[in-house]
Design a protein around this nucleic acid. Sequence first.
DNA 1: ATATCACCTAAAGCTGGCTTTAGGCCAAGA
DNA 2: TCTTGGCCTAAAGCCAGCTTTAGGTGATAT
Lengths: 145, 145
Amino acid sequence: MFTIGQVSEQFNIPVSTLRYYDKEGLFPYMERQSGIRRFSETEIEALRVIECLKASGLEIKEIKQFMQWCVEGSATYPQRRQLFEKRRAAVEQEIARLQKALSLLKFKCWYYDAAVKEGSEERVSKMLPDKLPPEIQKLYDEGRQ
Amino acid sequence: MFTIGQVSEQFNIPVSTLRYYDKEGLFPYMERQSGIRRFSETEIEALRVIECLKASGLEIKEIKQFMQWCVEGSATYPQRRQLFEKRRAAVEQEIARLQKALSLLKFKCWYYDAAVKEGSEERVSKMLPDKLPPEIQKLYDEGRQ
DNA sequence: ATATCACCTAAAGCTGGCTTTAGGCCAAGA
DNA sequence: TCTTGGCCTAAAGCCAGCTTTAGGTGATAT
């Protein structure tokens, strides 16, 4: 059992944010001891799921919906399964998007590295759009698909 | 040369957003023809960089800063290089974060798949936290680091 | 006894990134 | 001729996700 301050420290999440999550209904099982929140293993587990769903791009109210499904029991297994499948697809897409951005960023690092070394981007800019060294050409092309 | 409407369609970005970017100074070289914006290859290129930097988590005003550096010429190569290096690191970190979330999501898909099939999460929840099938155990462990 | 600390609430405030609104210009087609 | 469509501006509005503020409680340390 933990206090809000301990959880805040453990997860590096502000106390105000934990209170906000609670107010939004993300800890449906949370108990209190004379007004003070008690975070049990259930809430710690919930917090891990919250962080995961939030990273996946889900909004707070949809996370609340999920928590409600948990309270409703086995009848909502299909909804919960579907939710995780959708979030999985969303995260896979987002990773792909970031990987594309990463390629362009790597290309730009190479480009400005050369520009700094040569004092000018002239030579290197003349290699665009398809006369770049193979490795770099790949990054450049990936970055603009 | 493109009109704002054509660029909007090509990039699937609302016209209002393109005007907003322009107002925020993200297209320092943009020209006008009797008041109407003309998007040249320069602006198309800029837009790709904007999308990339935005994906990397950069704020609009910092993107504007970058565009200003471009206008200032070769003296700002080092700043630009440093910016791209930092964004690269940030994106790599973000991908790692998403990969962790993805592991937990995959685990949850497996979990609820079993729960749906068996009509109960009882059996499967008893395998926690370290009696899961090897493949799944890996996902579960990755998901909570 | 008093001050400090960690907790509590309700409500207001903030921020970034757009989007919407209200009003206007100009060119082409019916 | 008139109306439709695409362009323009400035300014107001919107939203999620917090964070801050103002005011309060109760336990422990000096």
